[in-house]
Design a protein around this nucleic acid. Structure first.
Length: 573
DNA sequence: GCCGTTTTCGGCCCGACTGTTTTCAGTCG
């Protein structure tokens, strides 16, 4: 789809217009259009052909024309003009904390800075600190910002940020004067990667709490420390530096602050618009009718006053949530089993029994052991002889468990030609089969979509494992047509996995949403290679929630007998 | 540039912190 390219072009127009000092509302229009285009599941080229572009939020006559021009010529005049005006790398400087459009324009105009290297040069030479409006301190901040950007690089994966955030939250809760504290921001919304960690707390003396906060052990740098807000960084594992913001409010504003700092920004803009329409005002301290606060203690009361349901944080993205009632989303408590994990038989670190006991201790009723198939040589994949023996061993282990069952499964490779790594006779002996692509992802002979479709059609394949093969911050998802895959999965009774490993989260939220709307049901699995990793189920569940999944669309929320019925139904055809 | 149970023109979300400012601009979320 060409959506990503158009979204990128609009984003670039916005960046350059900002440096150019353009009208801020016009700039936001480009950013809004960019976001709409990259988030929609519809093909922009198709919509353009049907003359339906302006049905999209934030796309009017002007944007539609520019999209048309891009589709026709691959260029947009406004962008060409802006690019002719500035050096190509100039807008990259916007990624540096402390460098905004105004300062970029200033150093470009006065010192001919056009790139990161130029910027480093004028900082080192001292020329930058002599500019009007800047000084030693701000230049030092920008130098720190460059170091921060070069060290952190990517956004932090949810699974890396969560333990750090929870540990800090506990420490904030113990600070003197703190009555309550909670995590908010993108972490609370369950995004697969997060920019920084946000904590809101309830205390009377903000300045004192902030002072305690910025002097906690492990604080790497203090970015800000005021009356109500503190901002620090911590150096987490490796060299990655992660920012943590703390906001302190009074008891009566707690719900408002929680709501405000949970976001998303776009969701909040919509809320404030609703407040304005009622002649009210909404900010992080509450909902106000003139000077009178009419809500603020809890999130629920703010939404209620605005005539809205209290949306689960995962849905607060301005992605259609305002159009109706939020669904009753799946929760971790609904999960009855984990249907994709490995044992020492292939590349797991624990035995079948250890995995089973650990899963039972987490309140599950069943698991499936799915070791690798023979082609996954590096992962010690099982030969046909070995898998047959393994199936018997798993069944024997299952018999010894009380009130818990272990399904004998496998994670069968989908080979480059779309065929499966085990013959049907072997797959038929498994209770549950996850089919996954592990090799030759880039092969052009058979597209990723066709390979997956072939596996979906096999009656013994219960689920497709990590369907797009993405690795967060490392490998982009395969170019597969999710809608086509999902329709086929729905028609065949094959489940699509949300792989809950934080490195994968695959399907990702928007893909899972498309899958659900095409009628496919999901399975949320950890793909654990160690008992500890069973706890990653929470990341899969939050991803499913972001997709709008209810428990009846997630097959491992079923009691085992109903799950078996679904597997059998597909096998009978 | 978008958009309309206030409007086809005139709005467009709001506040904290910092530094270089003698009253505020820039950045950030």
């Amino acid at each position: 789809m060409i959506n990503a390219e158009i979204a990128q072009a609009f984003e670039r127009i916005a960046d350059l217009m900002e440096i150019d000092g353009g009208d801020s509302f016009r700039i936001s229009s480009y950013r809004r259009a960019s976001r709409t285009i990259s988030d929609t599941n519809e093909d922009i080229a198709e919509l353009a052909e049907q003359g339906r572009l302006q049905e999209l939020e934030g796309i009017g006559k002007g944007m539609a024309e520019k999209i048309g021009q891009f589709l026709k010529t691959g260029r947009i005049t406004v962008l060409d003009e802006l690019e002719a005006k500035f050096p190509q790398e100039l807008s990259h400087l916007l990624g540096i904390p402390g460098m905004g459009p105004k300062k970029i324009a200033l150093v470009y105009e006065k010192l001919k800075v056009g790139s990161l290297d130029d910027l480093k040069r004028v900082i080192a030479s001292g020329e930058m600190a002599e500019l009007k409006g800047l000084g030693e301190t701000s230049v030092k901040k920008i130098a720190d910002g460059i170091a921060f950007m070069e060290r952190s690089g990517h956004r932090t994966p949810l699974g890396v940020a969560t333990p750090i955030a929870e540990a800090f939250l506990e420490r904030v809760r113990k600070l003197p004067g703190v009555r309550r504290a909670d995590l908010c921001g993108s972490l609370r919304r369950g995004l697969d990667t997060i920019g920084d960690i946000d904590i809101v707390c309830d205390a009377a003396d903000g300045a004192a709490v902030v002072q305690h906060f910025v002097t906690l052990p492990d604080v790497h740098r203090v970015l800000a420390a005021g009356e109500t807000k503190g901002s620090i960084t911590v150096a987490s594992e490796g060299q990655r530096e992660l920012q943590i913001d703390l906001r302190v409010v009074e008891r009566d504003a707690y719900g408002a602050a929680l709501q405000y700092f949970t976001g998303s920004k776009e969701h909040n803009v919509r809320l404030r618009e609703r407040a304005i329409a009622k002649k009210w005002r909404l900010n992080e301290y509450g909902l106000y009718d003139a000077a009178k606060r009419i809500a603020g203690k809890t999130e629920e009361e703010i939404y209620k006053k605005l005539g809205l349901p209290c949306f689960p944080p995962e849905l607060r993205e301005d992605q259609g949530e305002f159009d109706g009632q939020p669904p009753d989303l799946v929760t971790l408590d609904h999960i009855r089993g984990d249907l994709h994990m490995h044992s020492v038989a292939s590349d797991g670190r624990c035995t079948v029994e250890e995995m089973a006991l650990a899963a039972k201790a987490r309140g599950y009723e069943y698991i499936a052991i799915c070791d690798h198939s023979k082609s996954s040589v590096i992962a010690n994949g099982l030969s046909i002889e070995r898998i047959l023996g393994h199936i018997d061993a798993i069944h024997a282990a299952s018999k010894k468990m009380k009130g818990f069952e272990i399904l004998a499964g496998c994670e069968c490779d989908i080979l480059p030609d779309g065929s499966l790594d085990y013959p049907d006779e072997v797959l038929a002996k498994c209770d549950w089969v996850v089919a996954s692509v592990h090799t030759a992802r880039g092969s052009m002979k058979v597209t990723a979509t066709d390979r997956t479709l072939a596996a979906i059609a096999n009656r013994y394949v219960s689920a497709i494992g990590h369907p797009t093969g993405r690795l967060i911050n490392k490998r982009a998802p395969a170019e597969i047509d999710i809608a086509v895959i999902a329709h086929a999965a729905a028609a065949n009774g094959t489940f699509l996995e949300i792989n809950a490993s934080w490195q994968r989260l695959d399907l990702k939220d928007v893909h899972a949403r498309s899958a659900l709307s095409a009628g496919a049901d999901l399975v949320i699995d950890t793909d654990a290679h160690h008992t500890d990793q069973l706890d990653q189920m929470r990341f899969g569940v939050i991803t499913a929630r972001r997709a709008g999944a209810t428990k009846n669309r997630v097959v491992n929320c079923l009691p085992l007998k109903d799950l078996r019925r679904r597997i059998e139904k597909k096998r009978r055809g």
